[in-house]
């Protein structure tokens, strides 16, 4: 019994020593930042956080999803230091927080990779999502019913999509609904003849991004303004950021931070 105790206590002591040693070196910054909100921003925020904590090992940044609405709410309620939104602030939200545009992002119209159609006009996209066009043969595809897949009400990506593409028309209730970019991508990749909308940062070979009005969905086209569906990605804070939170946001906007933004497939703001 005594031996076991001795073993344990040496173990704990060496752990403590290790912890002290670890805090001894490293950068001057320490503390915890919590970030939550948009699932569009989440992978980017995770990468930015990883780069920042690598430079400042005593800093912990907790990155969580939840959606744009949640990000705004968490920031206002003080649950998170930083809220992430993948859409512009609504007018009633604007006065309550300080916003920082950390990147911009295109929204791609994606289809199942087997789909033969590779270009749609913005009007066709609108009609498909409004439920006016229900068969691929109406837009030059096979005689197959279109499976419309959308994000949830409150999603930033959906909000931006509605604003820029739907222009007042409503998304059909026949659509399947998923509540994150990843889940939407999984659904589109899994269901033949499906169509959905997705953040540029999530694009990969599992889904096919359509050209809109003849413009391929690429970062270059979005940057030059030819690709029509682009929205800002925001960090919001309850008040003017200070201390660690300010350091982190400054890092995101720095050259190094913006390089990560480009690497992850989003558009830099500088």
């Amino acid at each position: 019994m005594r031996k076991v105790f001795a073993k344990w206590s040496t173990g704990i002591l060496s752990l403590v020593a290790l912890a002290i040693a670890l805090t001894g070196c490293g950068g001057a910054l320490s503390g915890t930042i919590t970030e939550s909100g948009s699932t569009t921003v989440q992978p980017l925020a995770e990468k930015l956080a990883a780069a920042f904590t690598e430079e400042n090992p005593d800093v912990e940044i907790i990155v969580q999803g939840g959606g744009s609405g949640q990000g705004f709410k968490d920031a206002v309620d003080g649950i998170s230091d930083i809220g992430a939104l993948s859409r512009e602030l609504k007018t009633e939200e604007a006065g309550q927080v300080v916003k920082h545009v950390i990147a911009r992002d295109g929204i791609a119209i994606v289809v199942h990779p087997s789909t033969t159609v590779s270009n749609l006009t913005k009007e066709q996209v609108r009609d498909i999502f409004a439920g006016n066009i229900t068969n691929w043969n109406e837009v030059g595809g096979p005689n197959q019913e279109i499976v419309v897949i959308s994000r949830e009400e409150g999603s930033g990506t959906r909000g931006a999509f509605e604003e820029m593409v739907m222009e007042g028309d409503l998304i059909t209730t026949e659509a399947l609904f998923y509540n994150s970019n990843g889940a939407l991508k999984t659904a589109v990749a899994g269901a033949p003849y499906s169509i959905g909308f997705l953040s540029f940062g999530y694009l990969d070979s599992s889904v096919k991004a359509l050209s809109i009005n003849g413009t391929p969905a690429t970062v270059e086209n979005a940057k030059s303004g030819v690709y029509p569906i682009v929205r800002p990605l925001l960090f919001v804070t309850k008040s003017e950021p200070e201390g660690l939170v300010k350091e982190f946001i400054d890092f995101c906007l720095s050259e190094e931070g913006q390089a990560i933004v480009e690497e992850e497939g989003y558009l830099s703001v500088t």
């Binding site: 699932t39 998923y178 994150s180 970019n181 990843g182 889940a183 991508k185 999984t186 990749a189 599992s206």
Partner: peptide
Amino acid sequence: YYLAMDTM
């Protein structure tokens, strides 16, 4: 859940 739904 997250692996299946969000990352395929």
